[in-house]
Computed example of a mutant assay.
Amino acid sequence: MRTGAGAGHTGYLHEAVCYDSDEHLLAVVVPFLLGGVEAGEPTLVSFGARNAALVRDALPAGCPVTFLPGGDVYARPAGAIRSYRDLLARQVAAGAGQIRIVGELGREVLGDTWDWWARYESAINHAYDDFPLWSMCAYDTRSAPAHVLADVLRTHPRTAGPGGRHTVNDEYTDPETFLLENRPEVADPLQWHPPAVDVLDAPAEEARRIVRAAGEGRVGGARLDDLTLAVSEIVANAVRYGRPSTRLRVWAADGRVVVSVADTGAGPKDPFAGLLPAASEHSAGFGLWITHQVCDHVSLQRTPEGFTVRMTVKHETG
């Protein structure tokens, strides 16, 4: 049985909390969590250390709210979707009639890598709709850039505010539209300089060799292995499903390697390609799914001239 704003709702209830003070955040989040506890629902928080501490201090002592390690959950969008779907499936199997989660993305992802997190926020409207989930995504309007907040409104069907306000969001755009839009690409700093490699129509095996040679000594061996796997998959996709010619470019510096693969086709028709598992390893989306699992950032760009996948890997951090 669903409770609160989720009463009578089927599937995923996805709300944004755009707050401008600690008091504003707590005025929305604490009643949400306490309502879940009172209803006997699994009630979880996935915040960074600062806001998690704020919420802990505001809750009654011993309140049975589960705090997730937010930094681990939000390493990569596709990984976050996989982890949350596993968590939600376990809760439903245990008998949950509704699950409440409040979470936030780290401030570091609101910059140059926001594009794939915007895609995440849009895609989960579909990815979590199999579950009786009610979640709130918190964004601090004092630090989030204006374009991020604009995307937040376009990817959340509802907003939540103090005093139990739950408002239908007129700016919401369905994922099938949002995910296929041409989003302006933010140039990686390495792309301010000419690429170390710029070749046409290199087959997958040659692309692997080129990327490995360019990245040798720049990032760790495991990260370079991940990148060469990703590049191989994307080049194979471009040849198999795109249109000629295929252009491979590589930028490399100590600690970072960026690779782009472009063809003149329209890109995958599936708006969720990369973020949700492909039907099989032989389907068009499998290569993008692998790439989203192993790279530190993946950017997709659709233009009248074609489709480009940009992949970035960095040194491992200890």
Rank of each mutant, 00 (worst) to 15 (best):
F178A: 07
F47I: 02
T264I: 01
Q191T: 10
E15R: 12
V197R: 04
V152Q: 11
P64S: 15
I290W: 13
D72Y: 02
T3A: 12
I234E: 00
N182D: 13
P244K: 04
V239I: 13
L179S: 02
D20C: 10
V309N: 07
A16G: 14
L179Q: 04
W251E: 00
G79H: 03
W116K: 06
V258G: 06
D20Y: 10
L180I: 00
Y74K: 00
Q293P: 15
A78F: 11
R2G: 09
E181G: 08
L227A: 03
L200S: 07
A202G: 13
I99T: 07
V239T: 05
F47P: 00
A27T: 00
E121V: 10
P184Y: 06
R76A: 08
A138K: 05
S122T: 10
L288A: 08
P64D: 09
S83D: 13
V259A: 02
L33I: 07
E216W: 09
R256Y: 01
A78D: 09
L190S: 03
V168K: 15
G274W: 01
H24N: 15
V102H: 03
V298N: 10
M136R: 02
G35E: 13
V28I: 15
A5W: 06
D225C: 04
S260I: 02
V257C: 06
G318L: 03
A93N: 13
N51H: 11
G215Y: 09
P132V: 05
L229C: 12
A150L: 08
A39G: 05
A273F: 08
G103M: 01
R302L: 06
S122Q: 08
Q91F: 14
L68H: 00
F307Y: 10
A213C: 08
D170E: 12
C18A: 10
R223A: 11
D72K: 12
G8F: 07
A284Q: 05
